[in-house]
Design a binder for these strands. Structure first.
Lengths: 369, 369
DNA sequence: TTGCACAAAGAAAACGCTTTCATTCTAATG
DNA sequence: CATTAGAATGAAAGCGTTTTCTTTGTGCAA
């Protein structure tokens, strides 16, 4: 128990860790000595001639320490370049200020926008973001580690389609949880969802300005995908509101790819049903495929065919004609999820909340201005 | 010092934390009790009737414990759903198996591909990835926290242009470091760089098949951007190799945007210099802008103008005509950086390494097949 | 002067783990 | 049978914090 700080470790050398950004320390950069030179609270305490408790208080509850002392401690901290050990803090506080986010795949504009929004918001609120594409591994042990359980303070999970294993893993995680893209308030979880209704309705209304209801189509992505399903339903509902119940061939499902869109449009063109039609696509890439196939079939866009994409990715503004698209605020969704999660972590009282983000049509060239 | 485990905390209840994924625990999901029910090594020890040392050994050095005992401990671990506390482990091991990656901006296909590759590789090797768009904050205190120093075992920093503050922060960080996109072996750091030479040379060769050397242009991004500079140099060198030293107007710099590309091409078209020219763009978006402007000016691509992009993003395959582009293995770069970093962390001996990833031309429609 | 509230600071416990060192037990060796 | 090497296990220190509990010091009312 004789734990004399200065005896326990080498006496802290003056300016031991004072960096000047110079080049003379190149060699020590990556070798073990350099990184072992961790300055602890004891070193600071010794240098400032106070106890470690006081040092801690200076950093956490400054009002409990006299200005004179605080000044001395602060100076020592600066001199030594002291940074509190994150693990020790975490061990006591049971918090790391690290948030996890599990997305199906980091690929593409869509998810990168989500990450971007989440990261920015987390950073703003003093948290860090640990990403993790989905744990597909079958081995439970391996999966368990995959989300850094025990390290993260909370987790955002994006659920784009039914996924039992992931769901299971989430429930096992003893951390605050926010679900993205699926309303799970019923299961007691905070959720953030995209309200596809508004945007889809606007799109349909827009199409109906120049296209007959029976010539309107929704060309979606995978039939299991939550968003595609919601968008298809919103599409159907908007048509019904205008007195037309869409037939089964008016809402079709495939994949979120250019090829699927092009394939569908090609078939339609061959049977002469592409002309004077209006299409709401499940995403921008599908829309682009449809435009390509239309071009190949000699169907002019927007003259003879109106096309509207979904997501309003950068792609929409880059292609010609510019693609009308339903804007989906992915960055905002990421940010909202972060806010919800942090609120849940910091004051764990409120009952589950579902935040619903609006979508809206952005009209550009492809649907005829 | 009387630290009788079973007295210290509530005696571990049978099946206390046995989840079945059912819905009946909805209420306890997000409240504090649920997450406080952390099972510690003491609980496992008590249940298996061994000391905590033995439990630890079962997990870390199984060869030191008898099969009979191990079995009992393993059972207890499973029953209780025990997950070792990451902070306590970190405090001892001085390692979190979390890697940081600092990129200028998460935006866009380019960086998301990088993240994707890095994340996949990190996961494969049993590490986690903590992302961080660059710390732009001027306040040093704030910046310091921004990279989660003390928590991460190592850091990958993407350097796309000279950036003193970031550089400074990196050097101050007492963690293993890998630099992406800039060769810093001279500064004692492992690096991963894209070898723009090969791809640019191939592109130039390809252009020269149908275009005179004095009609070849490089339309780059920002003049400060390392990649743009490297690509411009590679372009110039390839032309020189063919006996033509490019004039100053043959390599120009602007921004990584469609607008810049379009603006440049428009000017060129107006002065009649776009026809029969060949352009290597700094990225795909610039290339696309050039194609648009060419179309507007009645210059046919690839008939009268060859265009080659850079990066080979998804965009290249989505537009028409398909964009020839220099493929840049961003995912591989991310993975390579992770590998280098982990190697550095785990056996900190080798001298600084610079891994150079090749680029290569992918010929598509825009440069005339 | 005595007592007392209150501010300031220190001592030490606790967080959950790993690991060294010490102890016990078994079985093989002389 | 006595000794001892070696395997299996336990006790406890230590990692770097935060925080509770104590102690010390100081000014002020009685």
């Amino acid at each position: 128990m004789a734990r004399t700080p200065s005896a326990r470790r080498r006496a802290p050398v003056e300016h031991a860790v004072q960096y000047d950004g110079g080049v003379h320390e190149e060699h020590s950069r990556n070798d073990s000595e350099a990184s072992k030179a961790a300055v602890s609270i004891h070193d600071v305490a010794a240098r400032a001639q106070v106890s470690i408790a006081t040092v801690s208080r200076v950093m956490n509850t400054p009002q409990l320490v006299s200005p004179r002392t605080a000044e001395r401690v602060l100076a020592a901290i600066k001199d030594l370049g002291y940074v509190p050990n994150a693990f020790a803090k975490g061990l006591i506080n049971r918090a790391s200020r690290v948030l996890g986010i599990a997305v199906p795949d980091i690929h593409g504009e869509f998810y990168s926008e989500l990450l971007r929004g989440a990261d920015a918001e987390a950073r703003k609120l003093g948290y860090h973001l640990l990403i993790s594409s989905e744990a597909h591994s079958a081995d439970e042990q391996e999966r368990r580690g995959s989300l850094a359980f025990g390290l993260i303070d909370g987790l955002i999970v994006m659920m784009t389609e039914p996924n039992r294993p992931l769901w299971q893993e989430m429930r096992d995680a003893a951390v605050p949880l926010v679900v993205l893209d699926a309303d799970e308030t019923a299961a007691g979880l905070d959720s953030v969802i995209i309200d596809n209704t508004l945007g889809a309705a606007e799109a349909v209304e827009h199409l109906l300005e120049s296209v007959k209801p029976e010539r309107c189509f929704f060309v979606g992505g995978p039939a299991e995908n939550f968003d595609t399903v919601a968008r298809a339903q919103a599409f159907a509902k908007a048509l019904e509101k205008r007195g037309h119940k869409p037939g089964p061939e008016q809402t079709v499902f495939g994949a979120y790819t250019l090829e699927w869109g092009a394939g569908w449009a090609k078939k339609m063109a061959e049977s002469g049903r592409l002309k004077n039609a209006g299409v709401l696509a499940g995403n921008d890439e599908i829309a682009l495929g449809i435009m390509h196939a239309a071009e190949d079939a000699g169907v002019r866009v927007p003259g003879e065919l109106k096309v509207i994409g979904f997501d309003d990715t950068r792609l929409a503004m880059l292609v010609r004609p510019n693609l009308s698209s339903v804007r989906v605020p992915m960055a905002e969704a990421g940010a909202a999820a972060i806010r919800l999660l942090i609120k849940r972590i910091e004051r764990r009282t409120t009952s589950p909340v579902c935040e619903r983000l609006p979508t809206g049509l952005v009209v550009r060239g492809s649907s005829g201005a």
